[in-house]
Amino acid sequence: MAIPDEEFLLKTTSACAGCPSSLILRYVTKAAGADTVLVIPACCTSVIQGVYPTTAMNIPVYNVAFASAAAVASGMSEAFRAEGRKTNVICYAGDGGTIDIGIQALSGALERGTDFLYICYDNEAYSNTGMQRSGATPLGAMTTTTPGGKKDHKKDLDAIVAAHNPVYQATACAAYPQDLYNKVEKALSIPGPKFMHILAPCPPGWRFPSEKTIEMGKLAVKTGLWVLYEREGGKLTITGASKAAMKKRIPVEDYLSVQGRFRKITAEETAEVQKTVEDMIARLQREADGIC
């Protein structure tokens, strides 16, 4: 699908250099088009969109309390539908606002069949407040609240969402904008609750040079740590670059060693990360093959 030239995220953002979240937002809004409202809880995009009285967004943006995005979207979507309007309601939330404080509202909105798209852009920490650990922070990653490296695994958000049987669920990565664009466009063509989980490699948070955002995203996919897929009507399809990664992957060390946040990861933890990847790939492959 051809990506339109029209921009809804203008060049005046307050994003950090190399920011994946603004990159993702750019393609999300291109796919969604002008008849769209973004609902944004506290997250990096609170800052990225600009400071009053200016805004970098060319569509309405409703900023809401941290835990409330999915619930606000519920009310907004019902109000639009009651008035006969098809306006897209998209929650654009970080991992903390989704996996931690916002998960109750997300669960409720999914269960109620809200006609909306919830996007979690995942930079694996509370980045807006300066990189604190979140439920999405992976094993071994240093944050300001896990100075010795995180000792717990990343929460499996996608499994939690899948348990709600949304009409459409997908993963994507900032490094693959066409795959991301296609999925947003498809999601918005289906009525009901849709969910996308998008990996957002964050230069200051993950401690890599600003020009390496795309490279880091590609490494995440090539190592199999991040798998691109979509699940529609209960059917899982592996997409884009992950098709190759399902068969042949590079070692996770190649990804971990180029990020400062994993400086203190132990050999045992690295092996555990590798095993987690192999288990996840096997599980997704079985589902894609229709075995489970």
Binding site: V39, Y62, V64, A65, S68, A71, V72, A73, S74, G75, M76, S77, E78, A79, F80, E83, A105
Partner: peptide, 9 residues
Amino acid sequence: AACIGAAAT
């Protein structure tokens, strides 16, 4: 929150 989202429209 839902009232806020609806009233906002």
